[in-house]
Design a protein around this nucleic acid. Structure first.
Lengths: 185, 185
DNA sequence: ATGTCTGCAAAGGCTTTGCATCCGT
DNA sequence: ACGGATGCAAAGCCTTTGCAGACAT
C-alpha cells in the first residue's frame, strides 16, 4: 500500500470555524442556513514562534507528541514561521542543521503531526503533499507554474452557505484553493 | 519524471464564472470587489449525453481531439452521465466493452481530455486524480472514508470576494472541496 | 528494562515515457 | 506512404513499511 487508507482522525472541536474565516461583517443574503460568526478562530493548541528548541518541545508536549531530537528539528522548521513546504523540502531544511535525520522519519513525523493537528496537509497537486504550518481556518492561493502556496487573507474570499451533508456523515473541513498561473505562457 | 511539470494550459474564456456559480441573488456585502453575476455558466464546448458513439465522436471533434476508437470508448464512459472516476476506474469501465485498451492509453487520453477541457481533474486525495465529467463551474463534496465524490448544488455553497492575485499571475480556477467522514468511526 | 523512535532500504501504487507496431487517410 | 495513436513494459516519483538497532524514561 502506498498510503494509509483515505482517512484521518476527526478534527474534533473547532470544525465550524472552517466554514467562515472572517465572516464577521458579511450581511446575510437569501441563504437561510447562514453560518454563525466567529471572532477568534480556535487555532491549533500550539504553534508558531517556536524558534528555540524549548518552544518546540513545549509545542510537541502540549500536542501529546513524545519529544525526540528529530521531531524538535522538524518542528523548528515548521513553526518558526508560517510556511508551506513539501515533505522533501522540510527534509532538506532539517538536514541543514541535522544531517542525521532520515527521509522516512520526516515523512512519518509529518503524518504524525498532521494527525495531531500541528500541521495541515494540502492536496494542491496530486504528486506531493504540501504541509501548512498554519492550522487555523484559512484558504489558499496556488501558483501552478511555480508551485508556490500562499495563504489568503480572511477578507479576500469567503464561503457562504451550509452544504447538505449525506446522511451519516460529518463535516471534516473545507478546502478552498485558488489556482493561478503566470501571465503569458 | 512522474508527471508533466505542474502546469496546464490556460482555461481561456469562462474563467470568471468559476468565482460565482449561482451567485445571482447574493446581496453585496461590505466587500468592495464583488464579482459580477452570471446567469448561464459557460459550460465546456461539448459534453454529456454522449450515449452513442456518434455523440462521442461529435464531442471529440468539436474539442479538436482527433477521433480514435479508444477515445470514443473513453468518452462514452465519461459523458454518458456526470461521473467522478479515477483513471483506473475509467480503465476498468472501458475494458468491459473494449478489453483491448491499454492502461497507458487511458492515462494519456485523460490527460489530453483535461488539456482540452473535456474533463476536470480533481485533486481530492494526493494519491490519485479523480476525473470529473462535468466541466461547468461547481464545487465538490468528498467522503474521506468511501472516496466518493459528489457535486455540490449551486445553492449549497457560494464564494464571495475576489482574491488579490500576485503580480503577473492570472486566475485559473477555484477549487472548493467539502470533506466529510462517516459518523462514529 | 521496556517501550518507542530512528534509519536504512526495499516495497508499493499511481502515473509517465520510450519505442516498435499498427492504423487511418 | 506518412503522421499519429496505441500497447507494452519499464522507469520514476513520492510515500509507506519492516526490521534491527539506538534511545529515552
Amino acid at each position: 500500500m502506498r498510503r494509509r487508507p483515505v482517512a484521518r482522525p476527526a478534527a474534533g472541536a473547532g470544525m465550524e470555524e472552517l466554514l467562515t474565516p472572517g465572516l464577521d461583517r458579511v450581511q446575510h443574503s437569501d441563504m437561510d442556513q447562514m453560518n454563525p460568526t466567529f471572532d477568534a478562530p480556535a487555532a491549533a493548541p500550539t504553534a508558531m514562534k517556536a524558534y528555540s528548541s524549548a518552544d518546540a518541545i513545549a509545542c510537541l508536549r502540549s500536542a501529546g507528541v513524545p519529544v525526540t531530537h528529530q521531531r524538535i528539528e522538524i518542528a523548528r522548521v515548521l513553526f518558526s514561521a508560517p510556511v508551506h513546504l513539501s515533505a522533501d523540502q522540510i527534509w532538506a531544511s532539517v538536514r541543514e542543521h541535522s544531517p542525521d535525520v532520515s527521509r522516512a522519519t520526516v515523512y512519518n513525523t509529518l503524518r504524525l503531526f498532521s494527525e495531531k493537528h500541528l500541521v495541515r496537509e494540502l492536496f494542491v497537486d496530486p504528486q506531493r503533499i504540501v504541509y501548512d504550518s498554519t492550522t487555523s481556518p484559512h484558504f489558499h492561493l496556488y501558483n501552478m507554474d511555480t508551485g508556490e502556496v500562499r495563504d489568503l487573507a480572511d477578507d479576500e474570499l469567503r464561503i457562504l452557505g451550509t452544504p447538505r451533508l449525506p446522511e451519516g456523515t460529518v463535516l471534516q473541513e473545507i478546502d478552498v484553493i485558488v489556482r493561478v498561473r503566470n501571465r503569458h505562457d
